[in-house]
Design a protein around this nucleic acid. Sequence first.
RNA 1: GCCGGUGUAGCUCAGUUGGCUAGAGCGCCUGACUGUGGAUCAGGAGGCCUCGGGUUCGAGUCCCGACAUCGGUACCA
Length: 493
Amino acid sequence: MSDKVRPRILKGMRDLPPEQMRARREMIDKIRIVYERYGFAPLETPTLEYVDALGKFLPEADQPDGGIFAFRDEDREWIALRYDLTAPLSRYFAMNKATLPRPYRRYQVGPVFRMEKPGPGRYREFYQFDFDSVGTSSMLADAEACMVMCDALEALGIEAGEYMVRVNNRKVLNGVLERVAGGDTLPPEVTHQVLRSIDKLDRLGIEGVAALLGPGRKDESGDVMKGVGLSVDQIKIVVGYLTAESATRMNVCDELESLIGESAIGREGIAELREIDTALTAGGFGEDRVVFDPTVVRGLAYYTGPVFEADLTVEIVDGSGRPRQFGSVFGGGRYDDLIARFTGEKVPATGASLGVDRLLAALIELGKIDAEPATAKVLVTRLDKNLTAEYQKIAGELRSAGINTELYVGKQGIGKQFKYASATGKTVCVVLGEDEMGKGEVSIKDLRLGDELSKEIGADRKKWLEEQPAQLSVPRLGIAESVREVLARYSSN
RNA sequence: GCCGGUGUAGCUCAGUUGGCUAGAGCGCCUGACUGUGGAUCAGGAGGCCUCGGGUUCGAGUCCCGACAUCGGUACCA
C-alpha cells in the first residue's frame, strides 16, 4: 500500500501554463485599455459572497441552488463562490449607493465559478471581464455598451466582418408574447419556455423552434422533447417575429412595429431600439458591426430591456481540422430590477460581460495572439564556471539595458544549456570562454537562425559545428547593442 | 441529469478466436561529441493495460458496476 498522495485536479478546473498566462494577460491588458478609454474604472470584489446576495437561495430546500459551489461558514451561513460579476456589482452598489456617482461606471475582471458539465472551452472556473453603467436608464449607455464591445474585439485584432454585435430588446419580445396571449400576459413559466425555445434557434432551425413551441419534437436519438403547446396561430406570430429581417436597423424597427401591433411595451422597446440606432450611427458604428436581430434572447431572466451579444463570424478550424463553433463570446443587456432586490429603490443598469477564456481560445486558433512562454529571450550560458562573476556582470548589463535576461543557474554542461535555452523559448544565447575573454569578445548565438540552418546540417556535423553559421563574435563592450540587434530580427511588435 | 462512444508508456496508437517475460512511433534520458541545442548512430528509463467485482485452468482481450473522458440532449444565474 502506498501513503503517497495522488496528484489530482478538480473536474472542470485547470492549471494555466506560462504561455497561456501570458496570452491571457496580454488580452486582458488590451481590453482594459478600451474600457478605460470609455471612462470605466476598476473594481474588485471578493470571490466569495453570501448566497442571498447572489440570489440563488432555494428557500424550500434550505439549500443553495445547484450549479454553484457553496458551503457554510462557522455561523452556519451559506456562502458561495460567485458565478458572475453582475451580482457582486449589484451588492457593491447597494452597499455604497449613498456615495457612488451616478452613473457609476466600473469594469472588473476575475474568475467566476459554475458547477456545470464541463466541455471543450467550458470550465467550472473561468474569467469574465465586465463593464457596466449603473444608475442611468439612458439608451446612450446601451448603445455605448455595443460600441465598447466592438472596440474591444477590434483591439484584439478581430476586425469588422469577423464578428457581429447583435442587438434585441426584451420589451419587444414581451410585446410579441403579449400578442401571442391575445393582449393578456402569458404565465411566467410559459414565457420562460418560449424564450428557451427561441434560444435554440441556431441549433434547431426555425422549424425545430416552431415544433418546440407547438406539440414538441423528436430529435435524431429518438428523444422526445415536450413542446410548449401553443396554437398554430400563436406560433405563426412568433415565427413571423423571428424571421423579421431587414437590410438596416431602422428597417428592422419598422418591420417589428407592424408585428407588434398595439402592444405598449412592444412599442416602448422599438422606440428604445431607434434611440440606440441613432446613437450608434452618430458614433460611427454601422450595420457592418452592429445589427438588430429579433432572435437574440440571452438566457438570463434578469434582463429587462436591450440585450446584446457578439459572435465570431469567422470560420475557425481546430487542430484536427474540424470547424469549431465559438458562439457568443461577449454579451450583456439592461437589468433594471437587479439592484432593487437590495435597495427597494429601482436602479437602472446596463453592461456586458466578456468570456475571457472562450475568446482567448478563439484568438489562439485564429493566430491573433501568440502563446509565447518565454519572459526572457536571452540566456547567458556558463561555459566555464570559473567565469561566473563575469557572466553575472554580463547579465546585469543586459538587464540594465532593459533586456530581459536569464543567467543559467543549473549545473549542466554547455550542450545541455543550449537545450535548456531552446526548451524555454530563448532566441539568443551569450557564450563566453577563455577564447573570447582573451580577445575581448563574446559570442552571440542566434538559436532561431540555428534552427533554420540546421535543416541542412547533413552528415558532416563536425564541420558544421566549426563554422557555427548562426553564431557571431562581437566586442565585449558593445554587448547590449549586439544582443538587441539579434533580438530585433524576431521582434514582432 | 439522460443516451451513446472511448479508457493500454509523457503523447498518438498496435495488441490476432481469451494463452508464454505487453509492443511501435514520437518525446524523454545517457553516450559517441572533453567549448555548442537542432542531424546521425548506439544504448536506456518509463506500464496497479482506469478502478472494483465476476466468468475461466488462464483476462489487456468476455460480463457487471464505478470513475474518467468525448459526443449528443437537457439545464445554464
